[in-house]
Design a binder for these strands. Structure first.
Lengths: 350, 350
DNA sequence: ATCGTCAATACAAACGTTTGTATTTATCGC
DNA sequence: GCGATAAATACAAACGTTTGTATTGACGAT
């Protein structure tokens, strides 16, 4: 357990000044080639690594990028997050940066957490998702001039780079798909109001319902958990004799619908129809295979990483034109009623 | 975009020394109560936050704990990781620490990454999973005296705290369950050799097979991906006329088996049987519901966090007696062949 | 020989904290 | 009213870097 090797230590051993050592290691032309080689040789031999805290202090930059994990984070948290963390870390490490992760307990806590991250110098930039209306995190970051990238556009769509999944299209798509065999009431099951992606989904779904001449669908704004999906479907299946259709914004909710159906002795594709979202692992193997839309997780993670890096390289202020709306792709067709046709996979997901 | 507020700034405004400001903020009895209040009032008004880098440099501690995400990290990465990150961040922030995340591309890269984390002072402690035989990460950390906690025991079981899932029991359990209706060859599909949890699983499974007087099962050591599960099952389903049984160490592999079965027109529960692991989201809703074992993700995450904090509070060297082996719980019974009995959920998973 | 020039290196300050020690100021005993 | 004592505060060094500037010594030009 020897002492950590520092510039000072190298300097003492070589009987030169720390400044010379520092410059030698950075290939500064001001140091004599022989000195440089000597320093570098010893540094390599002792496996010298520059201290991150000291560098951060000097540079006024932490060298870290934060990812904000949005609550609630449970087993059913969107699979995109892990992919994002992994991809982002790869990209960051290539540019000498590291990844910091913060998980707020509640949505209200997030703004304060963001403030802490910035003002304590815990990170130089932030990646955040689940943008919302009047998002206090965004106004704070803009105000401070902090580089950040969001998953989902905000109320200041031209003030920062963002990447967005086309949830409006997803909503439209789900309703359109369910419409074909619609035999009963249509339920839109989305995340709480104010969350932008959910608002877009609902808007897209409602618009499509109107276009198709449907009566106004029943709207549910709940947390995206299997429990909530089960609760809602359980309630509906208990009271109606018709064949309800559920357009769920996320597969977690749809899984809940499956659970409620099983509990009620109802069969999906006969007594009810379901459409999910985000193509969770396992959704391919439900019975019938869950209709859902793909969100191209890897591409999103990759894009967010790239955009974050580009933003970090930019000067302090915008405009930042990097706005990308990613398409959603229809997967499978289990929403079709059994008596109409066989369940056929539209596209393999692996 | 005003300058960050520092101790110096507060000191100048109040015409006192920075040391006084520093002490006032930490409620040092050496500063006069009126001065203390004056300082704290201004600090609150200007929303002063101590700079993390400066503190880290002075303290010789980064104030961060690293979590190593083990490759491969894909959509099917174990759901435990997100839960772990979330829980750990909660606990850490309560003690003024933060969470850093590192994702190695390959297993070989991990040891070097760990070295970098420690020697550059990127973190003061590490949480790591997927321990293996002759794990170079562990020997390095022990050598450096770094506080760390592992998910899964190591070759140095008394030298550091760890938490372990009872994979030996899981293997035993899977084979025992599949045995009841075994009509063909038994396949053990586990993660690559050298990964401790997989080795325990295989050992437990083989031992149980021997106890039950079964012929030696066929062994597969592959990455835990749906693709690998599908590949293996596809191969087997193509060549055998019998009813193979697959004990998969993780649901991702089992999902692959389901996919291959669908592709081959085979029906799970009639033409083959499957047993999974870790109870992934969605595994409840396969048809038939996937038999698997639960790994109590939240409890694991909580335990790892607690143990890490306790370890950080301890003196530099052991012994560290915190060893916990968590049980695995059988969920569902879809491995039963259809003609024998109906598929009944043994226990709800939500 | 002397000065300027250049290369090579050393010195020093700074980033924002924390903390040991020195200094100032007020208070008390006598 | 004077020295001792304690309270309050200021000074200074340190953590490990980076980087601007000063110093040293050798050499060529005059």
């Amino acid at each position: 357990m020897q002492k950590r090797v520092s510039l000072k230590m190298l300097a003492e051993k070589l009987k030169v000044d720390v400044s010379t050592v520092s410059r030698a290691l950075r290939d500064d032309p001001r140091v004599k080639p022989e000195t440089r080689d000597m320093v570098q040789a010893l540094a390599r031999r002792l496996d010298y690594r520059p201290n991150a805290a000291a560098r951060a202090l000097k540079a006024g930059q932490s060298g870290r990028i934060a990812v904000l994990l949005s609550p609630p984070q449970q087993r059913f948290a969107s699979p995109i997050f892990l992919e994002l963390l992994s991809t982002l870390d790869q990209h960051l490490r290539e540019t000498g940066r590291n990844l910091a992760v913060f998980a707020a307990r509640t949505r209200d806590e997030e703004a304060e957490l963001v403030r802490q991250i910035i003002d304590e110098g815990l990170a130089d930039g932030i990646v955040l998702g689940r943008t919302r209306k009047n998002d206090p995190r965004i106004s704070f970051l803009l105000n401070r001039g902090v580089p950040f990238v969001t998953l989902g556009r905000t109320d200041w769509p031209n003030a920062h780079p963002w990447v967005e999944i086309d949830y409006s299209e997803a909503g439209r798509l789900a309703v359109r798909a369910l419409f074909d065999d619609l035999k009963g009431e249509l339920h839109i099951v989305a995340a709480p109001e104010g969350l932008n992606f959910a608002d877009y989904y609902v808007a897209g779904a409602l618009k499509e319902a109107a276009v198709l001449g449907l009566p106004k669908p029943r709207l549910w704004r709940v947390e995206m958990t299997e429990a909530e999906g089960a609760r809602i479907a359980g309630e509906i299946l208990g009271q109606t004799g018709s064949v309800p259709a559920f357009a769920c914004i996320q597969d977690s909710l749809a899984f809940g619908v499956f659970r409620a159906a099983t509990a009620a002795g109802a069969v999906v594709g006969r007594d009810l129809t379901v459409f999910g979202g985000q193509n969770f692992p396992g959704s391919e193997h439900t019975s019938p295979p869950l209709s859902t839309f793909s969100t191209e997780d890897h591409r999103i993670a990759d894009l967010l990483s790239q955009v974050m890096l580009r933003r970090l390289a930019q000067s302090a202020t915008g405009p930042f034109e990097t706005h990308t709306v990613l398409p959603t792709v229809l997967l499978r067709q289990s929403h079709k009623l059994a008596q109409n046709e066989a369940f056929i996979p539209v596209k393999q997901s692996g």
